[in-house]
Design a protein around this nucleic acid. Sequence first.
RNA 1: GCCGGGGUGGCCGAACGGUUCAGGCGGCAGCCUGCAGAGCUGCUCUAUGUGGGUUCAACUCCCAUCCCCGGCUCCA
Length: 466
Amino acid sequence: MLRFFNTLTRKKMKFVPIEKGKVKMYTCGPTVYDYAHIGNFRTYVFQDILRRWLEYRGYKVTQVMNLTDVDDRTINASRQQGIPLNQHTQRYIDAFFDHMQRLNIQKAEHYPRATQHIPEMVALVKKLLEKGYAYKAEDGSIYYNIRKFKGYGKLSKVKLKQLKIGARVKVDSYEKEQAWDFALWKAWDQNDGDVYWETEIGKGRPGWHLECSVMSMKYLGETIDIHSGGVDLIFPHHENEIAQSEALTGKKFVNYWLHSEHLMVEGERMAKSLGNYYTVKDLLDKGYHPNAIRFLLLSTHYRQQLNFTFEGLKAAENTVERLTLFLNRLSEADGKPAGQELRTLMKQTKKTFEAAMDDDLNITAALAAVFDFVRDVNRMIDQGKVSKKEAKAVYDLMMNFDKVLGVMGKVEKKALPKDIEALVQKREEARKAKNWKTADAIRQQLYAMGIILEDTKNGVRWRQKA
RNA sequence: GCCGGGGUGGCCGAACGGUUCAGGCGGCAGCCUGCAGAGCUGCUCUAUGUGGGUUCAACUCCCAUCCCCGGCUCCA
């Protein structure tokens, strides 16, 4: 039985989709004012695992991920650099997709941008004004009156009276009836430069929370199955989305809210000022394999804070290598059939893996099943008990797991460059002649070139140094 | 102040009332190997922040206490 921890109820709940066999999922995406960092990608990897698991379980998933391409930060950054907003954001959108692809994150069906949904957002604000949930302030901005919405706070469990008034709210501002009302529409001011839209509700730009309500309803419908993002979005962002959407439709906005915990760096929060702020590119440039980065990000349960360290990244790299070496080994196994013993083992492993994932994506338990399996099959291979045909079946099962994990890739036998091939041959001859000194020297030379040679019963094998 | 999440072996990280306390990484040793690598086996590993309590039995429940992290208006 597939279960998810629902932030709304703070309990693990059986997953029942609105429409049988289909899942409508909205995943909060990046604000494209700068490069997304690995903390952001932790969330995107989590959402990817979620999507992949739903698909593994046979659901047809329709996923929407928004790109926030207009807000304070995007406007400030583009103006500071003197680049038009859309050019500025496009650069980071490109980088975002590039990094997503490097981390083997599957594509969503839709990537709507805020700036391309202004008319829909205006329409929603108009309706909220008509229904009395919103009001216009003196400067022309339009705010949502949260006291009008009975369920306000149901997701985050915040109590309005206990909310600390943030430093950003101007104390002398009496434009808002309540300090905690939030902007649906921000009237243009000088700081916005040429970023504004002339609309029926005035000259300005949308508030941040608006786009998610609008785009979720536009692409997925008034009520959807899953909405996910980082824990920091629970309040106020997701709380406000609920207020906007449910005030408009009178229907439940989202059935399951899933939130991923933050990534820490060396035990501290990641921050530019602390100098512990990394992008995917930073790590790739340092020579780490994208699969290792992905593995590190997915290997801790999503509701648990993940402490990023370079030691951990190195460990992740070794772990992934263990998996890929196992796949290599399988392609060479050619023993006697293990028969029932192996069949039972495979069946049991699959069952354990699936049960773990079904339990709120308990990936660490699922991985434990995989590693147990790897060890057991390795032992059988050592004993010459795995036939070619069986090895293929094991390989297929591993690929089945990797549909979800996405860290193993396919084993591809790349051809060695000719000069290296010649060196390998030369070493083979030296070995045959028991000229160990020469053979070892060549092996050392190849190692320096990033090629690791391994002598096996079936002859020499090579692999790329990680 | 209010509201959440945590503190598990050298490191990471499951289990959440009960068989030997998953799994990964690291280290050491053995098997294998000309040597190495890979793989396997064993050890490191009779761990659960601290002090009480409940129970036949607690990492798991209760109370107290210390420490860490997060949210409290635009940060995934």
